[in-house]
């Protein structure tokens, strides 16, 4: 079981993430969007969305720090295990709470605002389940660690080595198996979330427009070299509005 969870599943998820992203990019560029619902409702979004997004960015960098940087490196620059842990729990916890509050506002908004709820697909709902679960479970590991005080489990001796070993194609199954249950569940849900990622609206994160900082303001482009006049029907040309009312009935 351990071998499957920590030796096989990660690769399945990575395959789904990479392969799915490439497939989606090639076949569904038109569907690659944030699908913003700000036009429908913006008051709650103004609070919830930045809270969630900035929170999750911090959480992401925290994970990178915790999982990728080996414990020996931080100790080499004089950061003791206790100090590291204290900081990780404090800032990680704060970022996690921001993220959770943000997403709860967003989910509440999505459920209670009529047009936003109607624009929510099954795909979105599934994604929300995994996303919220991953965040909640992550906070749970933090809480357990805080509760345990100095006896807290040092995940940088179990989870982190395993995480790095996965990318070296020599998965250290035993290390991960030694971690407590809350880390196991969080990791599994996280992996599944990444497996699901390319097939949901989360793909917009992969096209975060950082190149905006560097590109010229005015973009010139040559006309598409295709037969002038006749064009294939494009997506986005579905008929006006009766489907909404059909759904109501």
């Amino acid at each position: 079981m351990s071998t499957f969870l920590w030796g096989v599943l990660p690769y399945l998820c990575v395959a789904s993430l990479v392969g799915g992203t490439i497939w989606r990019y090639r076949y569904d560029k038109f569907g690659w969007t944030t699908r913003s619902s700000q036009l429908y409702e913006s008051r709650l979004l103004r609070i919830g969305s930045p809270l969630f997004h900035f929170g999750i960015l911090l959480v992401f960098f925290g994970h990178v720090g915790g999982l990728v940087i080996p414990e020996s490196w931080t100790e080499a620059v004089g950061v003791s295990e206790g100090l590291y842990h204290f900081n990780a729990l404090l800032f990680g916890g704060l970022a996690g709470v921001c993220t959770l509050v943000g997403i709860l506002i967003l989910v509440y908004r999505r459920r209670t605002t009529g047009p936003v709820f109607m624009a929510t697909t099954k795909n979105d709902k599934l994604m929300y389940v995994f996303l919220v679960a991953a965040i909640v479970l992550g906070l749970w590991t933090t809480l357990v660690s805080v509760g345990a005080g100095s006896e807290a489990h040092n995940y940088r001796e179990t989870v982190s080595p395993w995480f790095r070993s996965v990318f070296l194609f020599r998965p250290d199954v035993a290390a991960m198996a030694a971690a407590p249950i809350q880390f196991h569940i969080h990791a599994i849900v996280g992996m599944l979330l990444f497996a699901l990622w390319p097939f949901t609206r989360l793909v917009h994160a992969f096209t975060a427009p950082l190149h905006y900082l560097f590109r010229p303001y005015i973009v010139y482009r040559s006309r598409d070299r295709q037969v002038s006049g006749s064009r294939q029907a494009r997506p986005g040309w579905s008929g006006i509005g009766t489907t909404d009312r059909d759904r109501q009935r």
Binding site: T207, P209, Y212, R215, Y217, V219, Y220, R221, S222, R223
Partner: peptide, 15 residues
């Protein structure tokens, strides 16, 4: 065009 983070808006060179 200048506001577009993705650079998706463009001006056609020809016309």
């Amino acid at each position: 065009m200048a506001s577009c983070p993705s650079g998706a808006i463009y001006k056609r060179e020809e016309d």
